[in-house]
Design a protein around this nucleic acid. Structure first.
Lengths: 236, 236
DNA sequence: GTCTATAATATGATAGAC
DNA sequence: GTCTATCATATTATAGAC
């Protein structure tokens, strides 16, 4: 061992990274449930099984820990729109986007809640992200959607507001899961609830954009037997 | 003045009521911006122009003030679904409901944020409301919607999840206004932004439920001129 | 690098003068 | 009824032993 700058796999830096990730994962849950001010360093320490001072050693301040957590969430956030490309089929692209967002609401509900809490309270730590990368992304993807509209490939709609609607409908299954669970009379949301939500959102967006196969419409002519529900795959 | 139990208009009780309402109105804004733990009694006092002890005199504890505020918000909340009645026209009823919800997102954004914050953090103070009056209401209104579907008056859809989607899309213009404003590059949302949002939500829901006049659909046949946007009244 | 003990401050709540 | 002064506690943060 001629040099002590070496840091092989399993070394100190890796140990450190592992501990940082463990703290961040715990903080995601605690901050999601209590908010920034509602969560105390004592609570965060207890939840991660470490002494309070240890958290300060790794992150300095509570706010630094919080912003590190936000950064780790935003990394994930921007990549979801990959399916929205000019050459893609509009229906398939929107469906893939909605399914991806719904998957995250189920797999990363705490991340969604931390983000929601931050925006709800003014996005003090997110201003530059919202007005920067996010706005750029929405502008870019809106041009793609507008291109589909101009080419007659889908019904006209205001593209940015379409994105706002999709974000709202998908993220509500994470952020407002307590309300949805209470209304559906469940202790917590089941996979089939997410599946039914996905079906509903897909129907609203795809039909709303004129992208669903238009089955015989039940317009003014009642008296017919109830139309069969347009059940999609992955039904619960 | 033979009896001192009299309390005419302009009397002490009225003064008291006025002051309570003033405190609640201020608290709505402060709690919306900071959350329950994030808002301090000192901040609430400063915002309402009263000494801290005065707030404690009127409400006792911070939590009592907060729950009083929540109650005043819930009173408003349940009345929005009045238009959803069996004999109503589905399209008109849903449109009226969506417009009412959007109006509140514009006129009472702080109330919406307080509610959102409470649900986001587990709805500790709202459990009985969510599992009680709200669930009952959703069940009742879902039967109405299912009746419309069974009568062939609209496309099949999962009624509770339709309500979740409408809540999410409309309330996002209050709860996430900071994000929407940042993306649209505005210091704050303009009336025309709310109008464009209303148009988008109406299109998704009404067309999504098979309730919009089905204009010539731009299905597979491109090469045609861009279809005219289905602009609704009150456009910005 | 890790953790116990403690400092410095902010907060919810109240006693008691007016 | 109203408000100033103050208490008791909880919180962030750090000093310093190991």
């Amino acid at each position: 061992m001629p040099q002590d700058t070496a840091d092989p796999v399993g070394g100190r830096a890796w140990q450190r990274r592992k501990r940082l990730d463990h703290i961040l994962a715990t903080a995601e849950r605690v901050f999601a449930e209590a908010g920034f001010e509602g969560a105390s360093m004592a609570e965060l320490a207890a939840a991660s099984g470490l002494p309070k001072a240890n958290l300060h050693y790794y992150f300095g301040t509570k706010e630094a820990l919080y912003t590190a957590l936000l950064d780790s969430i935003l990394d994930l956030w921007l990549s979801a729109t990959d399916s929205i490309r000019p050459e893609a089929d509009p229906a398939q692209a929107l469906e893939a986007y909605i399914r991806t967002k719904m998957l995250w609401s189920r797999s990363r509900p705490f991340a969604s809640k931390v983000f929601a809490n931050e925006v709800l309270h003014g996005a003090t730590h997110l201003r530059s992200y919202l007005a920067g990368p996010l706005r750029t992304l929405v502008q870019e993807k809106s041009r793609v959607v507008q291109g589909w509209i101009d080419a007659g490939r889908m019904q006209a709609i205001d593209p940015p507001h379409l994105f706002f609607a999709i974000w709202a409908m998908t993220q509500t299954y994470a952020d407002f899961s307590v309300q949805i669970g209470a209304v559906l009379n469940r202790p917590e949301l089941l996979p089939e609830d997410h599946a039914a939500g996905t079906d509903t959102i897909l129907q609203l967006v795809l039909r709303g954009c004129g992208l669903e196969p238009q089955e015989p419409l039940p317009v003014a002519e009642a008296g017919r037997a109830a139309v069969a529900p347009p059940r999609r795959r992955r039904r619960g």
